[in-house]
């Protein structure tokens, strides 16, 4: 089973649910992802398909990559290439038999899926201070204080003459892979390869993401009009 697919974050907007509620959604372009290589237990020791996403400029295609893509009859370089793992052993190998090189994996693999997890790369914030990076509070600006955005004390004891490992410090922040778990799939547009998920996804608009299936099941809608029994005994 294909458990994940590559995509791109388009941006956020809102749609209305059936009952009129406003639902904040992230618009994702998911797929089509061409199959570039099929890895099997026999040849590689594990089962997976290698998929690509996002056609780049043809002139940027390097020869080794061109040779690799040629097997799938793809002429454009792929912006992202990633492996999608399949189950180990025979079960996975059997599923892989359905795929051949150059097959396009599309959003419809998420049909009927209730929730997905989305991995994105967060926006880069450069060298960030304590306040932005670790949510520290600020020092006083007045009363002669110079401790406005300083890091404060880094240690306590004279016996402990080094800074403890893992101490929060200023430094590079952002550009890290963040997986947002269990976002509800609101809508899937197969023609346009568009998926709407409830809530926010890490990264800038246009950033590349990986959409993972989850095995959560949509809860059954609450039964309409079952008369509430009072918890405490009612007097007649």
């Amino acid at each position: 089973m294909v458990t994940e697919l590559l995509g791109k974050k388009i941006g956020m907007t809102q749609v209305f649910a059936e009952n009129g509620d406003v639902v904040p959604v992230t618009v994702l372009e998911v797929g089509p992802c061409p199959v570039l290589q099929i890895k099997t237990d026999k040849t590689d020791g594990y089962n997976a398909v290698q998929v690509g996403f996002g056609a780049g400029k043809k002139k940027n295609l390097k020869k080794p990559m061109a040779g690799h893509l040629k097997k799938s009859k793809i002429e454009h370089p792929q912006r992202v290439i990633r492996e999608v793992r399949f189950a180990d052993g025979e079960t996975g190998s059997k599923e892989l038999e359905k795929f051949k090189l150059g097959d396009q994996l599309k959003v419809d693999i998420f049909d009927g899926i209730y929730k997905v997890s989305v991995t994105g790369v967060t926006k880069g914030r450069g060298f960030a201070g304590m306040i932005k990076r670790w949510n520290k509070s600020r020092g006083k600006e007045t009363h002669g204080s110079n401790n406005v955005r300083e890091i404060g004390s880094t240690g306590s004891d004279t016996r402990l003459t080094h800074i403890r490992p893992g101490k929060h410090m200023p430094g590079h922040y952002g550009v890290e892979s963040v997986k947002v778990l269990n976002l509800e799939v609101i809508r899937i547009d197969k023609d346009k390869n568009i998926m709407l998920v409830r809530g926010a996804v890490a990264g800038p608009n246009g950033g590349y993401v990986v959409v993972h299936k989850t095995n959560l099941v949509r809860p059954a809608p609450p039964k309409a009009e079952t008369k509430k029994k009072s918890v405490h005994g009612q007097r007649k």
Binding site: I10, T13, E29, K192
Partner: peptide, 12 residues
């Protein structure tokens, strides 16, 4: 941006 506009149109 166009895709977002299209999605919005569906709920207009």
């Amino acid at each position: 941006m166009n895709i977002i506009e299209e999605i919005q149109k569906s709920s207009l």
